[in-house]
């Protein structure tokens, strides 16, 4: 459960990051086209909202505290990636997606 909350939060901030043209270029090598920036931002807000809702639903007020901590961790991680190797961003993205799927499955089954 905690994993799903954290990964959703991380995914949200990854979205926020690539919604910035500079970071988008660092990751994909091209400038973002059309209104992809807007779409990314909206999707990220949805993810972030989902993460918070999940934290609140499973842990109540305590969960909101954890959620704030997760935001800190997520941004720190992304800062570290952009400062060192922006190319790891894609790998991280796949890892996060797999992680989210696995933890959702775990949640449904148990």
């Amino acid at each position: 459960m905690e994993w799903l909350t954290f990964l959703l939060c991380l995914l949200a901030f990854m979205g926020f990051a690539v919604a910035k043209p500079n970071h988008y270029k660092e990751v994909f090598g091209t400038r973002p086209k059309g209104n992809i920036t807007n779409q990314l931002t909206i999707a990220s807000w949805l993810c972030l909202g989902g993460s918070l809702a999940l934290a609140l639903k499973t842990q109540g007020a305590y969960g909101s505290l954890e959620f704030i901590g997760y935001m800190t961790l997520a941004v720190l991680l992304l800062v570290a990636i952009f400062a060192t190797k922006p190319s790891y961003f894609r790998s991280l993205f796949y890892l996060v997606i797999i992680g989210i799927l696995l933890s959702t499955l775990y949640w449904i089954i148990f």
Binding site: A80, F82, A83
Partner: peptide
């Protein structure tokens, strides 16, 4: 604040 949130120039 959010514009260069992930910006760290080493």
């Amino acid at each position: 604040i959010f514009k260069d949130l992930f910006q760290f120039r080493n």
